[in-house]
Design a protein around this nucleic acid. Structure first.
Lengths: 203, 203
DNA sequence: ACCTGGGCGTGACAAATGTCAGCGACCCGG
DNA sequence: CCGGGTCGCTGACATTTGTCACGCCCAGGT
């Protein structure tokens, strides 16, 4: 049995290095490339031809989801395993839609990671069961495209007019979109709506 | 030269295990205990007598800062090295005040971690230079105790009356404290004030 | 004894926010 | 071709939020 070649992508160098150390302990696994940003994933994959890519969701440049899409398009044979800090239900859904073969939260015990890699390499889907359940109840984002944009632009506490300026919209329109988002999220508030949408992975 | 005994505390099992793997590669280091919450730090330290404790800041139960204080009080000889995701200037200051011997961000290269551990064990202070500079400019929190409390209670987007109810205050008082916090942070907004305060590590 | 600063409260005011109804435009599927 | 949905905009309205001035109490330093 030949060794499985791995690519690691995580913006935190310490975590990246530590994961590499952990996975290199396994005799059948070998980390052939490490990158710290989403943009670097595809070039590194072209050069080192990994069997499996472990991608973090939170990354500068392309995030893990977009990087998955790009990688699957460039090299469809490469398996993708998403490794992330936050178990946002929406992330799981979007990751799978982007073509990911597995989804692991950083809460899972260290020893299971190598198994997850092997399963993914074998062509199986690996998904955290608890998270999958959450994803089903949470469902898809109820927010329309514009509402999502507006809510995202209001994340940092910008006022209505500021957001309107950023998106080239009328202030009234922004207010309406925000109102709709607040209603759909069940929030009482702009800030609360942002929080809820973020927790569900809708932003 | 005897080996340095380590205690690892991080709520993310995968990261914890990976760090353990990384550090165990060094011949002079040995991970003798791993815990996933701040409350477990002191008991584990009592049992395993580590030379150096690596603590994450973000943890359930006691956070890394409080755990540092507790550990230093219970076993002053133990060296504490804080390892954290976010380079919030305020965290550094509070960590050092709580008695930490070193402060490392998760962005630093993996190979430097072992060195940081050795330096801390040798009695030196280890601090990320860039972060130290930030800490100097950012300075201490300008917020008074009450203002901090109120701002923290308003973090999730709660309304004035809700916050007032939580803290057993009058609505007007809450508004005044919030107004003061907004002024001191230079924000235009409650939400912005929260964001700014969080970025500085004042919450 | 005096001053200072933080905490707590009230009242009043302007500005921002959230809600609602209604209008025209567009695209897509039946 | 005619809905239905999304988008964009307006205007009006009640509520919330942010600001300010003012007062009271208490703990600390001088």
């Amino acid at each position: 049995m030949s060794t499985i070649r791995l690519l690691l992508a995580d913006d935190q160098a310490l975590v990246r290095g530590a994961l590499a150390a952990l996975l290199d302990l396994e005799p059948d696994l070998s980390v052939v490339a490490e990158v710290g940003s989403g943009d670097a994933v595809v070039p590194a994959a072209r050069e080192h031809r990994p069997d499996v890519a472990l991608l973090d969701v939170e990354m500068p440049g392309l995030d893990g989801i977009e990087a998955t899409r790009a990688l699957k398009q460039a090299m469809p044979a490469t398996r993708v395993l998403i490794v992330t800090t936050f178990g946002r239900p929406g992330f799981l859904r979007r990751a799978l839609q982007a073509g990911a073969d597995g989804f692991v939260v950083k809460d899972t015990p260290a020893r299971q990671l190598a198994d997850a890699v092997r399963r993914v390499q074998a062509g199986l889907r690996v998904v955290d069961p608890a998270l999958a359940a959450d994803s089903l109840v949470a469902g898809e984002s109820p927010l329309t495209g514009r509402e999502t944009e507006v809510l995202r632009a209001a994340r940092d506490g910008a006022s209505v007019v500021t957001v309107a300026g950023r998106l080239f919209l009328s202030a009234g329109t922004v207010r309406n979109h925000l109102s709709a988002a607040i209603g759909k999220t069940g929030a009482a508030n702009r800030a609360e709506a942002v929080r809820i949408a973020e927790e569900h992975g809708w932003l």
